[in-house]
Nucleic acid binder design. Sequence first.
DNA 1: GAGTTTGAAACT
DNA 2: CAGTTTCAAACTC
Length: 452
Amino acid sequence: PGACQSQSVSNDQICNAVEEPSDHIPIDQSALSQNMRGMRRRCLFNEKAGAVNKAAKKTSDRHSANTTTPRCKTNSDKIVPQAAQSSINQASNFPCAVSSSTSEPNIVNEDSSQAIVVANADESGQGSPKKKRHKFDDGDGTSCKRCSCKKSKCLKLYCECFHAGVFCSEPCSCQGCLNKPSNMEIVLSTREQIESRNPLAFAPKVIRTSEPGQELGEYSNKTPASARHKRGCNCKKSSCLKKYCECYQGGVGCSISCRCEGCKNAFGRREGLGPLSIEEAKQGNEENSACVKEEKKEDDNNQLVICPAANPVPAENVLTTPSAMDVRPLASRPPSSSKRPRSTTKVLGHPSRLCNSQAPLKTDTLLSPFENYAEIMFGVGTSDSLKGGLSPQTSVKVVSPNKKRVSPPRIGTGLSPICKSGRKLILKSIPSFPSLGGDVNNADTKTTLPAP
DNA sequence: GAGTTTGAAACT
DNA sequence: CAGTTTCAAACTC
Ligand SMILES: [Zn+2]
Ligand SMILES: [Zn+2]
Ligand SMILES: [Zn+2]
Ligand SMILES: [Zn+2]
Ligand SMILES: [Zn+2]
Ligand SMILES: [Zn+2]
């Protein structure tokens, strides 16, 4: 299976050859400006890329982002370039053979081929009865399915591919797709627009390292059960028991920033018992009495209750045959399921389900955050640079003209950068995204923030 | 596979 | 910032 391409381009790599599908390089949008070092050199892009580069160039630091680990889920260690670290997503690794046919105008992927491809989840591994895995679902990383957007042209966050920072590829069954390397300018400009509205839009939602021991560790430590940013979920009817809930889907418990009602997230509930400290749960008792305990009612206090290994068995598991266990990426598994993950898994980006190796970042995000935040923090200009940087005009109105609004979600409040990198390489740059409300105390890995 | 449910994203 | 609409995935059948 080929690697997937993420939406980014490196200067060096720009080439036009399309090569074999199997071999693509993942292109990461985010990295676009950076060069990925180590990897191979084939590129998909052509001249356009060049243009883009230019734009991107600003970020050209070469930190060398390496996106190693093209394979799904393998990526435990990737070196992350500084900025990247925050935004590391390894999420993308699908078998994507992008048809980068140059000829491809811009349009849809409607090739039936894709659809078909999607279907083939061949390797998913054991033939265990497929319980319910739907498209992206994991499956394991192998199957990596992709989006099936009909109206967004894959240029809005509705599109999981776009949201994850990767180009659409074969497995996608999207219609009118513009999220392709051939439209890179559009893709990037769109990303920037969105990012300008919400700098965290492309930041990984969940970062978790699951090393054998650590998995829970994170809980125990400081990162709240969920190291998620953004605002947490807002589930009303699902009780955070299904994948409708982003927290649950990401394999993390709900945090204080969630506004869910009747939360029963198997990875850790929000609210509820106050006193319970998270950490204990970690291992001390497996039984976890508390977690199960239900929501007593929603008090004001939102605390996070985490259920350690014990029981939280997500619905899926319930029926699942033990033997097969889940194929899901570790990260997404509920704590209890099986044992601890051996490899370090970082879930980033969205659903862990996408299996991509590369970090989908943001175009500039790597740097951009830099810029953005810098600007914001330092009071430099607004985000002009962004806009300017990328040719805005290229932006296409996907569906409707969006006005760009520049009101970052909550930057003001939560500037504290999170710097939790799974592996730590810290660089001097500013973390790609600030932690938002939830985790305030996460300095764990050590953030190196240059003092302003 | 069609149809429903769900909550984020987008929009007003 | 809240309310509404749009959207595509998750889920159900
Ligand atoms: Zn899409
Ligand atoms: Zn797609
Ligand atoms: Zn697409
Ligand atoms: Zn939820
Ligand atoms: Zn939540
Ligand atoms: Zn919840």
